[in-house]
Design a protein around this nucleic acid. Sequence first.
DNA 1: AAAAATTTTGAATAACAGTTTCAATTTTAA
DNA 2: TTAAAATTGAAACTGTTATTCAAAATTTTT
Lengths: 139, 139
Amino acid sequence: MQKHPNLRMTRQRQVILEELRKVNTHPSADELYEMVRKRLPRISLGTVYRNLEVLSESGEIKKLEPGCSLKRFDGNPSEHFHIRCIRCDRIADVPMASDLEIDLADMTPTEYEILGHRLEFFGLCPYCSNNSKTDANRS
Amino acid sequence: MQKHPNLRMTRQRQVILEELRKVNTHPSADELYEMVRKRLPRISLGTVYRNLEVLSESGEIKKLEPGCSLKRFDGNPSEHFHIRCIRCDRIADVPMASDLEIDLADMTPTEYEILGHRLEFFGLCPYCSNNSKTDANRS
DNA sequence: AAAAATTTTGAATAACAGTTTCAATTTTAA
DNA sequence: TTAAAATTGAAACTGTTATTCAAAATTTTT
């Protein structure tokens, strides 16, 4: 069942994975570091970065690279889209009709060998959307 | 004709814009800095960054924020897609049938207020595609 | 056109996310 | 149980981008 049998599961790696899977908030490495620290106070930020890299390479988790802002991580590696709030950078899953896969790649005349695409939605999260109605002047 | 009438066009800003419009290689700030330096040897990198920001905010140019790697800039601000080489990070325009706009945003049930989407293709540029056939072992 | 107010510049420095190094420790294999 | 390999914590380091500030340039007001 394990895709990458040579992936050692150290305590640190295990806790990072567990904590990430607990939430659906797509935390950044730093946020995850704070979460993990409650269980492993002596863990270092470098270890978190390293393991997030390893875990996403092995397909256990997904590394999100949203336009502009810092990387975030998703414990759910199955194919789905995301939407990012342009105000607060929060990221949410977009529950999308599964048969709605885009098949644009076929019809794009380019010299490149197309391997895939990335589609990211952006907009306003409920919180920022509400606030923007009253909060006209933002910095 | 000018979208933002209070945008001053200083010599530096003008040259940055001209050099960017000369090419279709989507240079990074640093690459553009080198290009501009040939005409304005005393310009500073900070000025380049500042002006790329100003120009993209005013809509004169487009700031590309490809997954992961560093920002790049496009002198053509009109709507079109890009493809990025996963090997060398080169970015090219994707000439796409204009009527092929995706209208996924309608059908995504989310609490977010969707304002737009970003679609980026990735693959191998012709150069890297050729090389990968012989060059099996890469670092 | 001169003076005052505003913006932009160059140069240097800071901020920041992310990576790398390395000796010490832990885990796996022999 | 010993040897080999991978991982860790701590710290230093990278590279990109942002910021600071006095000086210079530009615009506006007189």
